[in-house]
Design a binder for these strands. Structure first.
Length: 222
DNA sequence: GCCAACGTTGGC
DNA sequence: GCCAACGTTGGC
């Protein structure tokens, strides 16, 4: 990655919400708008929880956009120099903001989306914190953003390094069964972003969520 | 600043 | 390939 070439990851895009830089119109803010102006920061603590675990989606099967294949599965990450790639192409404010919170050394699930078998395929590690996503200025890139200018880039990316495959593939369907179960009975996956914010391509997980999902690799499929 | 139309995501 | 959910855009 940094020294070598960057892999190209196609991140999922999705849309919306900002809150960090430009004052984009976050849907979030919009919703609560009127009510309490002071509300955004007051409690001092529960504002924005700090997360240390993540789930990042990418498509392992070929899909073409502007003649460019967006395919980037965990095997593709593994095949990169130093098994490292930049996670470029994220064009959603919420997802971008989560990437900006990422710290070196944190772990993330590599999630396969928009494919035969969606689910968690493996683990990776953040090896470089957020920096400018160069693909926003590249007219040839499927994620080119004509509205962004080099003076104030809109989009960021991080570098991730392959860590390992999960001992078994953890299908979305199974995670969903747990999610539904936990919603009724109370359990670690009751609020999992994968289901509560299904369109977000970069999602935070609590340590409990992360550990629970990881523990499934040694269990029989539900 | 509201909101309807539109576009995209992504599971199925 | 369908379609539900939801973010974004743009007219007013």
């Amino acid at each position: 990655m940094p020294p070598n070439k960057k892999a190209k990851v196609r991140k999922e895009t999705t849309s919306s919400d900002d809150s960090s830089d430009e004052g984009k119109a976050s849907a979030f803010n919009k919703k609560k708008k009127a009510a309490t102006p002071a509300r955004k920061r007051e409690k001092g603590s529960s504002d924005s929880p700090t997360y240390s675990h993540w789930l990042m989606k990418s498509e392992p099967e070929s899909r073409f956009q502007n003649g460019i294949d967006l395919k980037f599965g965990i095997e593709d990450l593994k095949a990169q120099p130093e098994q490292t790639a930049c996670w470029d192409g994220v064009r959603n404010y919420q997802a971008r903001n989560f990437m900006r919170q990422m710290k070196v050394g944190q772990r993330a699930f590599f999630y396969h989306s928009n494919c035969k078998e969606p689910g968690v395929a493996g683990l990776m590690k953040i090896v470089k914190e957020a920096y400018v996503d160069h693909t926003q200025f590249d007219r040839k890139d499927p994620h080119y953003d004509a509205a962004s200018n080099p003076g104030s880039p809109k989009w960021s990316m991080v570098d991730v390094q392959y860590q390992r495959m999960t001992r078994r593939f953890l299908p979305l369907s199974e995670l969903k069964r747990y999610h539904l179960q936990h919603r009724d009975s109370g359990g670690p996956l009751k609020n999992l972003a994968l289901f509560t914010k299904p369109r977000l391509s970069v999602q935070p997980l609590t340590a409990e969520e992360f550990d629970f999902i990881l523990s499934l690799e040694d269990k029989k499929p539900l």
